[in-house]
Design a protein around this nucleic acid. Structure first.
Lengths: 358, 358
DNA sequence: ATGAAAGCGCTAACAG
DNA sequence: CTGTTAGCGCTTTCAT
């Protein structure tokens, strides 16, 4: 019941829980039980133990039964590091993310980890804090202890990308690089849906809130907005660029008002949410006076007031798909480097409506 | 440019970026460079290479220079698994979380991972999806390939806890168990601040929205609300229990209205946010008619309308502290199992005000 | 100061 | 079907 630690820094935030209840069969743990102990206890050789566990049909049913029973009783858990050393297969995957605190990533990470676990892979997580340098360093270190890596929204340049691809099996998530297997989201189609929605409501002029210049997704989204806008008779003026954050949205709202548009397409939800807040503060009613559309459909989008119309992006499915693509590569049935593009979908909620009658 | 994958399930959500630009010194990667290759290239034995890298003062300055240069040129990265096999130290830590998609956890995970990385540890992440069974299984598997584990908001029962503690070094986060080192947040004091705030505003009767029955934090928070409420002349009626989620908050708002209170203390922010939404839908103005206080201070709390008054919990600092506690245990300077309790702090925003004049 | 040799725990030939 | 023999890549005595 001590009480200490003065340094409180960066983020704050809580949650937790207490025990469920499941009986655990009694195990005799003698600190570290190795395959040798099992072999000895079962009165067979270590290789038999290994086979009984990994290649069940290479040992007699009886031996197998005994070995497995003993292994179970002793609580034997094979040492994956040792196994990996000889087999070349570590049973580990790497997962690299620019910023896990960005609400866009957690569902992706969760799905990826869960999928990996099902295939009996453990996953190393690395948050690069948006730094390409940290990213490449992490990848180099990881390479040796994983069978492959999923890199989400890579910030690597071409040279670094080439190096990484030579280091280990890699699947990119949210970035298309020739020759590199990847899982992508159909940003263009999502933006088309959003633009069509606005045009159908009768909007004729809207703003696109530009995201980070270096963002691959942003380029796709902006281009699509302009292209499909022209096609649907919706003029799109670009404002920005803005950081993909709530605070930047607060900032972006004023230019939006000045731009005399009846609708705004934001690069992402965080930005859109900021716009919503600031618009309300300035007395501009959403959606009556201005319609707002986000992108991503992060959890908070549906909790905003008004609930945000946005383009849902299948980030959980993408995380899962990326791991699956990696697993396929590892299985060796690799035809060509696979590129998967997942569909996106407009979620119409309450932040969009016909423009005010002039 | 294929296009496939029909199955879109669970969560949806986007973000990404494209390359920065940093020159990478040219490396001659011969697929996998081992300590042997370095030894050969440097014309010394493997043990000398090992020493030159790990125990610099055991080799002559000249040899050291040469070896390091060669290692650098070849891009040698020691195989941590092999190292761990002999040294018993894996250089890996485990991080177990009930649900990374819960916005409470990402800052914690990020801070923990970052801190571990600084100490040159890699981290295995496991999301247990709130399932004690998955949790114990993950812990058993991890135990062998890590030097220690941080378990966030453990859902383990006593027996399982005992087993885990025997498996590897463990630090709990958000749960106090006798004999187990832990990092805690001062829930009681945070609740005291919230209650005092309400009492100071003139509230005389408020509701506490109960969280999950099994949650250790919830028990602490509820008890504190009642105890400090009595002390401050604020009657606290408990409503619930509710799941710690936005949807549950939507549901909780109606009983709140029926309870004829002038304020509500929610178990956590998600719940409070739901209450905010539903109250607005029913035409109840916050804070004019009812004040709302959350707990945790997740990112969305500040983005709500009105911005939520809530108790900030230092989750990032906690993640960092947990890793540090683990690191200390590993270093062996373990005096007694350490328990650290971090302070919490009320963030007064716009969802609280004096009660309506009756 | 340096090299040779012995394993860490495990799997994969290779014999019986 | 099962045991024996080699190592995987690395650190660490133990000699030299």
């Amino acid at each position: 019941v001590l009480k200490t630690f003065a340094e409180i820094c960066g983020g704050w935030a809580s949650e937790d829980g207490a025990g469920g209840s499941q009986a655990t069969g009694h195990r005799e743990r003698g600190v570290a039980v190795t395959i040798h102990q099992v072999a000895q206890a079962a009165k067979v050789s270590v290789s038999t133990v290994s086979r009984a566990l990994n290649a069940p049909d290479q040992v007699s049913p009886e031996t197998r039964r005994v070995v497995r029973e003993v292994a179970e009783r002793l609580g034997y858990q094979p040492n994956r590091a040792a196994r990996g050393l000889i087999s070349g297969r570590t049973g580990n995957l790497g997962l690299v993310v620019p910023d896990i605190a960005n609400p866009f990533f957690p569902p992706m990470v969760k799905a990826a980890q869960t999928r990996a676990q099902i295939a009996d892979y453990a996953v190393f997580l690395c948050d690069t804090d948006e730094d390409p340098h940290t990213e490449i360093r992490a990848l180099r270190t990881m390479a040796k202890q994983v069978d492959g890596v999923v890199v989400c929204s890579p910030r690597l340049n071409d040279e670094q990308t080439a190096e990484v691809v030579g280091l280990t099996k890699v699947v990119f998530l949210n970035r298309r690089v020739p020759g590199v297997p990847a899982v992508l989201m159909d940003n263009a189609d999502g933006m088309r849906q959003a633009v069509d929605h606005l045009a159908a409501l009768g909007h004729r002029r809207c703003a696109y809130l530009d995201g980070p210049r270096t963002s691959w997704s942003n380029q796709e989204r902006r281009n699509a907005a302009v292209r499909f806008g022209a096609q649907a008779g919706l003029e799109v003026v670009t404002l920005g660029p803005f950081a993909p954050r709530y605070e930047a949205g607060l900032h972006a709202a004023d230019p939006v008002i000045a731009a005399e548009v009846t609708a705004v397409l934001a690069y992402n939800d965080l930005l859109a949410l900021g716009v919503l807040t600031r618009l309300a503060a300035r007395g501009v009613r959403v959606p009556d006076q201005v319609s707002v559309v986000g992108f991503d459909d992060i959890a908070m989008a549906g909790m905003a007031a008004p609930p945000l119309t946005t383009v849902a992006v299948p980030s959980a499915a993408a995380g899962r798909a990326a791991v699956e693509a990696l697993l396929e590569m590892l299985a060796g049935d690799h035809t060509e480097p696979r590129v998967v593009e997942l569909p996106t979908q407009l979620m119409v909620r309450a932040s969009t409506s016909p423009p005010p009658a002039t």
